[in-house]
Amino acid sequence: MAGKYMHRVTLQVEERVRLPLGGDRTSWVDWKIDVPAEVVPLSGREFTAATAEHGQVSARMEVPFLPGVVNTMRLLFDGQIYAIRAVLPDPTARRHLTLMVDAGISDG
C-alpha cells in the first residue's frame, strides 16, 4: 500500500505451551508480518526510579483493517516492542484500525 502506510510492523500473539513435566511456557509468536502502517509518536518521557533510568514512548499506529486484532497482542517496529493498549476501529467503513501503543516500561 502506498501513501501514508510507509512503515512495516509485525503483530504478535502470546502463546502458552503446556510442558510435558508440568507447568507452562509462554512465548510471543508472529501473527501477521510485514503489515503496512503509519507510525505517529505521541510522547516520550524519561525518568529516574530506583536509581535506574527508564524511558517510555507512546504512539499511534494506523494499519489497514485486520479482523482479530486485540489489545492483548503486541507489535514490533524498528527493533522495538510495543504493547497495544487500545484498538480503535474506523467507525465508518472498516478500512483501518488505530492502535494506541507504548514501549519502554512494560515492553508488551
Rank of each mutant, 00 (worst) to 15 (best):
V9H: 08
A103Y: 01
T92D: 14
E62M: 13
R25P: 05
M1G: 15
H96C: 03
Q80H: 03
V35M: 04
S58E: 15
E14Q: 15
E14L: 14
L88V: 15
H7A: 13
V40G: 06
V101K: 01
P67E: 08
G68Q: 06
I105Q: 11
P89E: 00
E38V: 01
D34C: 05
P91V: 05
R8C: 06
T98C: 06
E53W: 07
D24P: 03
S27C: 03
R74I: 01
G108W: 02
A37I: 06
S43G: 04
D90F: 04
L21V: 15
S58C: 06
R74A: 05
S58T: 14
E46Q: 14
D107L: 10
V13R: 12
M1E: 12
V13K: 14
A52C: 09
E46V: 08
D24I: 09
G104P: 00
A93I: 05
L11M: 09
D30S: 04
L99C: 00
A59M: 12
R85N: 15
E62N: 13
R94W: 07
F47W: 13
M100I: 15
L75M: 03
D24K: 08
V39M: 01
E38K: 13
T98L: 10
G22C: 10
I81Y: 01
A50W: 08
E53V: 12
V13A: 08
V40Y: 01
K32Y: 06
L97V: 04
V29D: 09
A49N: 11
R95N: 10
I81V: 15
M73W: 09
V63Y: 04
R94Y: 05
V69P: 14
